[in-house]
């Protein structure tokens, strides 16, 4: 079993919601990654989503795309990302790490090699944006053989039959992208999110994280009132992008800490 279910069990007992920050591995530079991951945990992250840089991040908006380009300038590939997780694990045996990225780096490494190495490095879950359930049978088999959770996306346009299909395949948590479009977009309709989550919960028994469009205390608090986990990506990447290098760790800590307190204010709902 991965580290993810225990984290959600603990939070549930404390009537708290999970905070899942997303950063791109290698942005702004490889040497800063492991300290940044520890800083996220100190600031209150329950799970870390680590983006694997890819040359063609089709589902991402300009912010995460730029972060991918910065990481690629340092030639950060999947092998390096796994090594970063391995290094992080030396000082943190408990915080789950989820890799998020695109299919081609995994295709290149091969499912077997990737899954074995990811397990060895302490990866808990993987979300490959462009592996929908239809194309994922082999992939999921390899992950499960190594006790790595296959994480899938659900969107506002996902019909009921697909929700059930994802419910059968997904482990750890599912990631509901709360608006149409790419990452970093601005408009978030909380009424829609609430209605959709009710629908999702009738089929899905594992926790549901919500991401895309969460940028501040208000949206974080509101989403925490609805979902089991709040995923925050582009806003953190912007902080990294706009901070002088010496201030990145401090500024990201401040931002995430602030969002953490907002999420905890949401209080118990269900």
């Amino acid at each position: 079993m991965s580290r993810i279910p225990a984290v959600f069990d603990n939070l549930r007992q404390q009537h708290r919601k999970a905070l899942i920050p997303f950063i791109t591995a290698g942005d702004p530079e490889p040497a800063m990654m492991v300290p940044l991951m520890h800083e996220l945990v100190k600031a209150g992250a329950d799970i870390i989503e680590l983006g694997v840089p890819f040359s063609d991040p089709m589902a991402d908006g300009p912010t995460i795309q730029r972060s991918s380009e910065r990481a690629l300038k340092h030639h950060v590939g999947l092998r390096n990302v796994l090594a970063m997780v391995e290094e992080f694990r030396r000082d943190d045996a408990g915080t789950p790490v989820v890799l998020m990225g695109y299919a081609n780096p995994v295709e290149t490494m091969g499912y077997g090699t990737f899954s074995a190495r990811a397990r060895e490095c302490g990866v808990d879950g993987v979300l490959i944006v462009d592996y929908p359930p239809e194309e994922s049978a082999e992939w999921v088999k390899h992950l499960l053989a190594r006790q790595i959770d296959p994480i899938f996306l659900l969107s506002p346009t996902t019909p009921q039959a697909r929700i059930e299909r994802v419910a059968d395949m997904a482990q750890g948590y599912v990631y509901y992208v709360s608006l149409k479009g790419v990452t970093g977009a601005l408009n978030l309709d909380l009424g829609d999110v609430a209605a959709k989550l009710t629908q999702l919960r009738s089929s899905i028994s594992i926790p549901i994280g919500v991401g895309f469009g969460i940028r501040d205390r208000a949206t974080a608090r509101a989403v925490a009132g609805l979902a089991d986990a709040v995923v925050i990506g582009s806003r953190i990447i912007e902080e990294i992008e706009n901070s002088p290098k010496a201030r990145i760790l401090t500024n990201v800590y401040g931002l995430v800490k602030n969002l953490r307190t907002a999420i905890d204010e949401a209080g118990p709902k269900h």
Partner: peptide, 20 residues
């Protein structure tokens, strides 16, 4: 039916595009 030409083709997109 799923758009495969042997091992090639298919639908490798994010969930947000599947319905379209």
């Amino acid at each position: 039916k799923q758009g495969h030409f042997g091992p090639y083709g298919g639908i490798f997109v994010a969930e947000t595009l599947i319905a379209a």
